[in-house]
Design a protein around this nucleic acid. Structure first.
Lengths: 114, 114
DNA sequence: ACCATATATTCGATATTCCATATATACGGA
DNA sequence: TCCGTATATATGGAATATCGAATATATGGT
């Protein structure tokens, strides 16, 4: 994993928020991120595709939904960077309010998405 | 420190290498970075200016030379990200060879630069 | 005052990134 | 098979980033 390529992935608001939300929740689908970040479907999808292509994210299709999670073979330092960014910048993620609170109250397994 | 702004600073080859070299050496001047990275003077200077404006670097003039070092008031998570990137990606910095080896053999205080 | 060295800045050209819109594909249910 | 929902991709334009070349500024020595 080239460090510069990695940081390019984190250098966009939508991408970084998506990554940190996914890191926190374990797994999220496109429509959940759309709602959480209040962004259009193509925009979310495009950024997720980029993160998958750079091998930061893995995807798993379940019915009509595609769930994204952190790539398990992500280098250690990269996971640690994400983890530290998440825990030491709680405000960055908590800026979006109701959607995220609702999201947390539902276990992933039971969600019917959008 | 906005995480996205921070990662934008790391999302360029010249900037990231400069930051990591400065983190490792403690303090470096423009001409040392020019030699280490084999890049033009305006290019190095421009990127350092950007890192200073984003408050990742501090500068100190000593005679005709300007020495750059990590901003001491850098948030903890940001320093840790830099430190982890440095220690867990030794190859990224060691790609440039002779110039860096020579640099390490001279203590900062005694250097006459270029 | 003049010159040499180190560093900063400006300017125009090029490259890259980001987005909205439109369209395509995949899946499940009726 | 047809429809609705979820997701992906293609296209073109706007905004931004990066660069090389030229120029400006600062410092120290003669």
């Amino acid at each position: 994993m080239n460090p510069v390529a990695f940081y390019k992935c984190l250098a966009d608001d939508t991408r970084l928020r998506s990554l940190l939300l996914i890191a926190r929740e374990g797994e999220l689908c496109v429509c959940e991120l759309m709602e959480a970040l209040k962004q259009s479907q193509p925009k979310i999808s495009r950024h997720l595709a980029q993160l998958r292509q750079c091998e930061l994210l893995s995807d798993r299709r379940q019915g009509q939904w595609v769930f994204y999670s952190l790539n398990p073979s992500l280098p250690d330092w990269a996971s640690q960077v994400l983890g530290m960014t998440l825990t030491q910048n709680p405000a960055f993620i908590t800026e979006n309010t109701e959607a995220l609170a609702r999201m947390q109250s539902r276990p992933v397994r039971d969600r019917q998405c959008c």
